[in-house]
C-alpha cells in the first residue's frame, strides 16, 4: 500500500497499535507492518513527526527508557487518544461500508 493511500489514516493506525501496548518508534513501524501482513510499508521516517504531533495533541504520552545503554522514547495512548481511536474506528467503519456498498 502506498504512503499516499494512507493519508488521513496514519494517526488512527498509530493510535491502534500503541493502544495494545506502549511502543517506541521503531516498534510502532514494525507493529504496523506485522498487523498488515507487510502491506503497510510506509516511509519509516514519517512516523516520527506523526508521533510527535499526536503527543502535542494530547493523544499520546511518552517517556524515556534505557535499553542496552541507549535512550529510547516509549509512547503510550492517553484517555483522549483512546477516545479519538474510537472516533477513527467509527469513521472508518462508515467510510468502508459506504465504499463497499458502491463498489460491490
Amino acid at each position: 500500500m502506498k504512503a499516499e493511500e494512507l493519508k488521513g489514516h496514519l494517526d488512527g493506525l498509530i493510535l491502534a497499535v500503541v493502544s495494545r501496548e506502549p511502543l517506541h518508534g521503531y516498534a510502532v513501524i514494525e507493529s504496523l507492518k506485522a498487523c498488515s501482513g507487510g502491506e503497510l510499508a510506509l516511509p519509516e521516517g514519517t512516523v516520527y513527526p506523526a508521533l510527535h504531533r499526536l503527543e502535542a495533541d494530547g493523544l499520546l504520552s511518552s517517556k524515556w527508557s534505557v535499553v542496552g545503554g541507549r535512550r529510547r522514547r516509549v509512547y503510550s495512548i492517553t484517555k483522549r487518544g483512546t477516545k479519538e481511536l474510537g472516533v477513527s474506528r467509527e469513521r472508518w467503519r462508515v467510510f468502508a461500508t459506504t465504499i463497499e456498498a458502491v463498489l460491490a
Binding site: H24, G25, Y26, P43, E44, G45, T46, Y48, H52, R70, R71, R72, R73
Partner: peptide, 20 residues
Amino acid sequence: ARIVAEFSDHLHENPEAELG
C-alpha cells in the same frame, strides 16, 4: 536532541532503514 535520539535508536535497530 530527542528526535536525534529516536532516529539513532531506530538506526541501531535497523541500520538499513530508509528513513527519508
